[in-house]
Amino acid sequence: MTRYIMFVCVDGDPDTDPSPEPDIEKWVADNDASGKRVGGDRLAGPSDATMVRLRDGKTLVTDGPFTEGKEFIVGYDLLECDSMDEAIAIAAAHPMARGGRIEVRASWPMELDLS
């Protein structure tokens, strides 16, 4: 099993297919029930983001970053899948695969560095 993170994004270029989009409640319920989805949530908007840096021992906190573009992350889901193919199938069934786009990333466990 590999852990995959779905970054759910808007991209200003939604699907034009008029058929109804899948229901998000059902998507969450189905994937929670199968044990494939192990967590996830929506995110507060990018205008409410806060940036933290440490420089020369000082914590620097600033407002932002401000994303000017139409592409930003609006949520995330954590999946446990046996392969990228399974993760792709789950991502493709998410309504935001049509409303925007979904970036699927495999996690990179620390233990792999030791082998």
Partner: peptide, 14 residues
């Protein structure tokens, strides 16, 4: 290797 792209023939529906 890292993204877990499977080493198999896809299922019938795919």
């Amino acid at each position: 290797k890292n993204a877990g792209i499977p080493y198999r023939v896809p299922s019938i529906d795919l």
